[in-house]
Every structure is written in structure tokens, then in C-alpha cells.
């Protein structure tokens, strides 16, 4: 299977123009982008992303503004590149009408990544409240039972988000034998890419992810690059990363 690598940016963070530029630059290397919609109480995020969310909220960032920016990103990147929204259940719940609108469909957003909606509760958004073809991406973890992995893998279409470690974003990656066996089970049970996220912050961890999975997702380290070194630092980092990955 060809690689399917993704990256995370907080929408309109640190500001609208930098976000659009970083998104377009990143998608020259990565296959998909996760756009974070800030939420006040991000229980699955570590300090870097949680602080970015708080700063974004403080500066008035909201879904409507981020969708405008996604429109601008779409105009600059190949239509083959995928865009997902990453946020928490209450933001989705409050914006169901927007997410069902014709305007939204034009943005060609492929799915939603919602860390506080486990597969047991996704009926809340996929039953009567179906979000018109927007897939809720399945998370699998080192804790997920084998039966659940088989079932979830069978019904995923876009990709499966495998969390590398027990913890929140911004930690370090640990792949023990049990976890690798679960990744293998997910791969053999599904027809879509199994992508590893959480704790991938350099070319070494990305290479390790690619040895076992169909792709990797990078987030916290990119937010830190934008914070510390701006767009130039972000571009240098991603250029070098993909140079090293070959």
C-alpha cells in the first residue's frame, strides 16, 4: 500500500495567513491535513496543542473563520490531498447544520477526527443525525480488544487512526510487541490505511511508524516549530523530514 501520511495544524493559528501558508506548504509533502477546531476543554491534548487552542479561542478563532481558510487552502493544493477536521464532540454537536450545508460540502472535507467519541458512541452522530457522508475516523489504541479491532477495521473507509501510546498528544512513542500485534491485526482486517499517531516528532519516529503502519501523523512538533521558528522553521523541518524519509 502506498504511504498515507498526515499532519495536524490548529485552524487559523498562530494567525490566519500563517495557517494557510503552512497548510499549503505541508501538503506538498503530506497526503492529508487535520485541521484543529479549538475547544475549551481538550482532554486528549497535551500542553502544546491545548495552549494553541486556548490562544486561538482568545483571539476569536471559530469554525466559520477556519472554513474560510480551508477554502483558501483548497484553492492552492491538489484535489487529491485530503482534509479532515479534528475537534471535540461538543463542537461537532453545536455545528451539525454547518457540517450538513452545501457550502461545507464544496470544501471536500473527507471526515471528522473526534477524540472524545469512541466507536461505542459514534451512533450519536451517524444515526438519525447522520452528517451526510462525513466519516467519523476510527481510533484504535494499544488497549483496544481484538474483537473491536476487527469490527472497527471492517467498517472504516478513509483511514484508521492508531494511537501509538497510552497518553495524550505530545508524549513519546512506545511500540511494544502487544501494540505491534494489534497494528498487524488492524492492517489485515481492513482495506484502508492504518496510520500511526501520537508521539511522532522526528524522522526516526516517523521511520519506525512506517515500518509497521501505512503512514504517520505529526502534530505537536509542528505546532512547536511554528511557535518557536515561524513559517521558515516549519518549512525547513518538513523539507528535511521528507528528505530523510526519502
Amino acid at each position: 500500500m502506498t504511504q498515507y501520511n498526515g499532519f495536524y495544524l490548529m485552524g487559523n493559528y498562530p494567525d490566519r495567513d500563517t495557517f494557510i501558508e503552512a497548510a499549503a506548504q505541508g501538503l506538498q509533502h503530506f497526503d492529508f491535513l487535520e485541521v484543529g477546531i479549538p475547544f475549551s476543554d481538550p482532554i486528549a491534548d497535551g500542553t502544546a496543542i491545548a495552549e494553541a487552542a486556548q490562544k486561538a479561542l482568545d483571539s476569536g478563532v471559530n469554525l466559520a473563520g477556519i472554513l474560510e481558510s480551508i477554502k483558501a487552502v483548497r484553492e492552492r493544493v491538489s484535489p487529491e490531498k485530503d482534509i479532515y477536521l479534528m475537534t471535540y464532540a461538543n463542537i461537532i454537536f453545536n455545528h451539525e447544520e454547518t457540517l450538513k450545508s452545501e457550502e461545507f460540502k464544496k470544501l471536500n472535507v473527507k471526515g471528522l477526527i473526534v477524540p472524545d467519541v469512541p466507536s461505542s458512541e459514534d451512533f450519536f452522530f451517524t444515526g438519525e443525525n447522520a452528517l451526510d457522508g462525513l466519516e467519523i475516523i476510527t481510533f484504535l489504541t494499544p488497549e483496544t480488544e481484538d474483537e473491536t479491532i476487527k469490527k472497527a477495521s471492517g467498517r472504516s473507509n478513509s483511514f484508521i487512526y492508531f494511537i501509538s501510546t497510552r497518553g495524550i498528544t505530545g508524549g513519546s512513542m512506545k511500540l511494544d510487541n502487544d501494540t505491534m500485534a494489534k497494528i498487524d491485526l488492524a492492517k489485515s482486517s481492513s482495506t484502508c490505511p492504518v496510520v500511526l499517531g501520537f508521539g511522532i516528532r522526528d524522522s526516526d519516529s516517523a521511520k519506525t511508524a512506517l515500518e509497521h503502519c501505512d503512514g504517520f501523523i505529526m502534530g505537536t512538533v509542528l505546532i512547536q516549530k511554528l511557535n518557536d521558528k515561524g513559517l521558515d522553521g516549519f518549512k525547513k523541518f518538513t523539507d528535511e523530514l521528507f528528505g530523510e524519509l526519502g
Partner: peptide
Amino acid sequence: GGKFLPETLVPA
């Protein structure tokens, strides 16, 4: 009600 928490916590 419900169980709106990360997948990692579902087995717990």
C-alpha cells in the same frame, strides 16, 4: 449520559 471519552479509556 453516555461514554464520550478517548478510545484509550474505553476498556478501563
